[in-house]
Design a protein around this nucleic acid. Structure first.
Length: 347
DNA sequence: ACCCTGTA
DNA sequence: TACAGGGTT
């Protein structure tokens, strides 16, 4: 898989915690991030995604429905799913690179299937996952029927999520990627999953995953840099909008920022390798395209509509959809109880 | 990735 | 109650 987002892992100050620690919290979820994860991994043994009777892919609906309803019912979380809009022009090259990688993976997948090598086929298939327009429309329809709010961002979803978190409309942004920190989210939560493990198809094994909380202010003060310097640092390492400088990883970039303060003040020979688009990239992170018109309130479950959609149109089994309905009803009654007692309010 | 059943 | 392994569409 082509790596997404900024690579900050080696210098990140994270705090691992459990789902129980996050009870009652609200999150702006990076929708494309989770949908791609579901599309990649929810597959039959041979790598075929789940599909309805008409051949429409449903893996992302299965994943999103069962995960979100569980986080909402068992942990009292409030989720708002945020979807990417139009990417900034500078991202185009990155988008094309990913498209190319997918085409290559599709070829290797077909070849592995024809050889009967299903382990290899699966590991290739997970790299072919595509979110289509119909897949996105289905996702929004599902969320609306469940009563879970969603926001269509005008630009980058991570920018929108960061804005919502910095306004206090949600407690944290949730994504695997670090970009929302650059966009200014006060808190980033990684790995908001139920199973606590992630399957690594290329390695054929699972890895333990715990929710990770990164608090921007603490993270920056620990590094001794400002958000502006974190952005400059990321430009040196590489972002969704530029390639990054060969030989400069997060640790070297951090040293450079501490010593010189900003891209402009870098030594001549380093400065020469910085992309001339760096000011545009800074601006994408510091002043992104967002909308202020959104609603994070939970709506009522449309049970009849949900059954009609998932069972009638997308080949879900009634028993499993009943599970979803029960969870949302449980969550709703828990909410009215805490409202009645007068507790449980938080951003 | 999550659900569910069988097993100890 | 914890885990393994097959099923989900």
């Amino acid at each position: 898989m082509v790596p997404l987002g900024v690579l900050l892992t080696p210098i990140i100050a994270k705090k691992t915690l459990s789902l129980d620690d996050l009870k009652g919290r609200s999150f702006a979820v990076d929708g494309f991030n989770v949908l791609h994860q579901f599309l990649a991994l929810i597959r039959a043994r041979d790598g075929t995604p789940l599909m309805d009777s008409e051949g429409r892919v449903t893996s992302h609906l299965v994943g999103l429905a069962f995960r979100t309803t569980r986080l909402v019912s068992d942990y009292g979380m409030k989720l708002v799913i945020v979807f990417d809009g139009r990417p900034p022009e500078l991202k185009q090259r990155e988008v094309e690179k990913r498209r190319e990688a997918k085409r290559k993976a599709e070829e290797e997948y077909r070849e592995a299937v024809s050889r009967g090598d299903y382990a290899k086929a699966y590991s290739k298939a997970v790299m072919t996952g595509r979110l289509t327009r119909e897949g996105l429309d289905d996702t929004k329809r599902l969320l609306t029927l469940l009563g879970i709010p969603w926001v269509q961002a005008p630009g980058e979803g991570e920018a929108q999520a960061a804005y919502m978190a910095s306004r206090g409309d949600v407690w944290a942004a949730n994504s695997r990627d670090y970009d929302s920190l650059l966009f200014g989210t006060p808190r980033l939560l990684r790995y908001l999953t139920i199973s606590g493990e992630e399957w690594l198809p290329s390695k054929g094994r699972a890895r333990r995953l715990e929710p990770e909380l990164i608090e921007l202010e603490g993270f920056l003060s620990e590094l001794g840099i400002t958000r502006e310097q974190l952005i400059d640092l990321s430009i040196l390492v590489g972002t969704d909008f530029n390639e990054g400088i060969k030989g400069i990883g997060p640790k070297t970039a951090l040293k450079l920022m501490r010593r010189h303060g900003s891209i402009e003040e870098l030594p001549e020979e380093t400065l020469a390798k910085v992309p001339d688009t760096y000011q545009v990239i800074r601006d994408i992170y510091l002043d992104p395209e967002i909308t202020e018109i959104y609603d994070v309130e939970t709506r009522e479950l449309d049970e009849e509509g949900l059954v009609g959609f998932l069972c009638g149109e997308r080949s879900f089994s009634p028993r499993r959809v009943e599970t979803l309905v029960k969870r949302m009803r449980a969550a709703s009654s828990q909410r009215s109880l805490t409202d009645y007692i007068g507790g449980g309010r938080n951003a």
